[in-house]
Design a protein around this nucleic acid. Structure first.
Lengths: 175, 175
DNA sequence: CTTGCTGCAAAAGTTTTGCACACGT
DNA sequence: ACGTGTGCAAAACTTTTGCAGCAAG
């Protein structure tokens, strides 16, 4: 049951491993340059989406951005959010994270060391942890098969202490 | 661009790490027992789906099964395939594999050591490799956060030798 | 016979796309 | 002005579900 589908109302409680929020501002310039290079425009909507994305401490999804944008003074449409996410991926400002197969999850791609994700199957809490040590494994496996390594993802599924506590309580109730 | 979407017509060429196909037959009995325990029935359709699943050498998806079932003498509906996949997951005969976020991917859960997946971003080829060494990391991370470990997934993205060759050819064509 | 199962078609959820109009450069 | 971008609504795709008839135990 590799399933984190029933997520608690749009939010992922996340313990991030990010280190420097000082890198956030230059990102705007970086995105701008990226767009110019591609003959694309830096629109108000893209600025707003970038801003929302940069404020994320951990894993997020399109849905979440959409909800935030809906309330904000700047309403941005679903279509624009999806289109902009693609550009942010290409610009390597965000990267995809594999949490479950029903929706796409993203995370900032900069200012953080390689991380894996520890997912609680019950509460959907996601904890990040560093995974530098996996680079060696990636290199080795790629070399063995003649591949050029690009990136890797490591996800652990388990039960959080909170989930176990809840379980206990439920058993008490039922029994 | 963590995207393996444009997959070559329903097939994943896979180099598996499976070891004993001799375990396959008992699976039928195991599934039967599992169903009985749950008050469920072992129907012709379920038998056929189990059979198709057991013949898989590597990663597969619902879509693929559906296509196979369409041609076979036993036509099985989409709905039944999805419903049966859920039971097979619960019975721990198959497990979910995270390859990309657009579709669910599965793999037999037995008769194989823990494996990771090396995915070629261009050709979508998937190579399995053993990942026993990651168990220690899983245990350690879980202990650090008070989690009970359940399972883990490790995916490497890269470019296969074949993809690089194709690229070369294309550059030659264009230039 | 009783209960669960199947197929169909419709629904649901996420992501993409066509189009007319609006906006950066 | 030109070429892109945006919003909207519809389409595409994967997965789920309701229902009426069907089959396993």
């Amino acid at each position: 049951m590799t399933d984190a589908r029933e997520r608690p109302a749009g939010t992922y409680p996340v313990t991030a491993v990010s280190e420097d929020d000082g890198l956030i501002q230059p990102m705007c310039a970086i995105f701008r340059r990226f767009l110019k290079r591609q003959g694309l425009k830096f629109t108000t909507e893209r600025a707003f989406i970038l801003d929302a994305v940069l404020s994320k401490q951990g894993v997020f999804e399109a849905d979440e951005l959409l909800a935030e944008m809906k309330d904000a003074e700047h309403r941005v449409s679903k279509a624009t959010i999806y289109r902009t996410l693609k550009h942010l991926l290409e610009a390597k400002i965000i990267k995809e994270v594999l949490i479950d197969s029903s929706r796409a999850h993203y995370q900032l791609a900069f200012g953080r060391k390689a991380t894996g994700h520890l997912v609680c199957m019950e509460t959907n809490q996601i904890i990040e942890f560093p995974t530098e040590e996996l680079n060696a494994l990636m290199e080795r496996v790629c070399k063995e098969h003649g591949y050029d390594p690009l990136s890797h993802r490591f996800v652990i599924y388990g039960s959080s202490p909170a989930a176990k506590a809840t379980e206990q309580a439920e058993v008490g109730d039922e029994g």
